[in-house]
Simulated scan of single mutants.
Amino acid sequence: MKKIALGMIFAAASLMAADGATLYKKCVACHGVKAEKPALGKSEVIAGWDKAKLVEELKAYKAGTLNRNGMGAMMKGQMASFSDADIEAVSEYISTLK
Rank of each mutant, 00 (worst) to 15 (best):
K34D: 13
E57R: 15
W49R: 02
F82N: 07
K59N: 03
D84F: 03
G48H: 04
E56T: 11
K37F: 11
A63G: 10
M16D: 08
I94Y: 09
E92D: 12
K34L: 04
K34A: 07
K2R: 12
L40W: 14
L66F: 12
I9F: 04
K76Q: 09
Y93L: 13
E88C: 03
E56P: 03
I94T: 00
T65I: 09
V33Y: 00
A85Y: 06
G72Y: 14
V28T: 14
Y61W: 12
K53C: 01
K25V: 13
Y61I: 05
Q78S: 06
Y24T: 07
S95N: 11
A21V: 11
V55G: 00
D86I: 03
M74W: 03
G32H: 10
A13N: 07
L6F: 06
S81K: 08
D19H: 05
A89K: 02
A12V: 14
E36V: 08
M16P: 01
A89H: 04
G41K: 07
A21R: 08
A47Q: 10
S91P: 02
V33S: 08
L54C: 10
K34C: 06
A29Y: 05
A89C: 09
C27M: 12
K26G: 08
C30I: 05
D19S: 10
S81N: 10
L15F: 15
M75K: 04
S14W: 14
I87M: 01
